Amino acid sequence: MPIVVDIDVLLARRKMSVGELAARVGITPANVAVLKNGRAKAVRFATLAALCEVLECQPGDLLRWEAEAPHPAGDAPAARTP
């Protein structure tokens, strides 16, 4: 997925654990892990706002876009429909 979540970087800078972040944001440590490991498919704005408040950051400090590697010839991804 081309959206990367940098929670681990901010946690390290703030010397905060996943458990502490989860408790302060009001989500489970498992959900923080899903975000941290890039397995999340969506993030609610309320959760994003709470993360930003607790980590004292902007949404762009948590999320960034990274281009995906091109697919080899003949192995193109399925076409997306609107």
Results as ranks from 00 to 15, higher is better:
61 D>H: 13
46 A>G: 08
60 G>S: 10
76 A>I: 04
32 V>E: 07
34 V>L: 12
16 M>H: 02
19 G>H: 05
33 A>F: 13
49 A>W: 04
15 K>R: 13
11 L>P: 01
22 A>S: 15
47 T>H: 06
4 V>M: 05
4 V>N: 08
36 K>V: 01
65 W>A: 05
50 A>H: 05
22 A>C: 01
19 G>E: 08
17 S>I: 02
5 V>A: 03
75 D>G: 07
30 A>F: 10
36 K>D: 05
58 Q>E: 14
43 V>F: 04
32 V>I: 14
51 L>C: 06
79 A>L: 15
49 A>G: 03
17 S>H: 02
71 H>K: 10
77 P>A: 11
57 C>G: 03
6 D>A: 07
30 A>R: 15
52 C>Q: 06
41 K>M: 09
19 G>R: 09
50 A>E: 11
46 A>E: 12
33 A>C: 06
72 P>D: 03
7 I>T: 15
9 V>Q: 12
45 F>P: 05
7 I>P: 12
75 D>E: 15
14 R>K: 12
2 P>L: 02
78 A>C: 06
48 L>V: 01
26 G>L: 01
59 P>M: 00
18 V>L: 10
15 K>V: 01
34 V>N: 08
27 I>C: 03
24 R>H: 02
10 L>C: 10
33 A>N: 15
63 L>E: 09
6 D>M: 05
43 V>W: 01
16 M>S: 06
51 L>G: 02
64 R>C: 05
36 K>R: 15
48 L>K: 04
8 D>P: 00
14 R>S: 07
63 L>W: 12
38 G>Q: 09
38 G>H: 04
56 E>L: 11
60 G>K: 11
32 V>K: 01
5 V>D: 00
44 R>G: 14
72 P>T: 06
66 E>F: 03
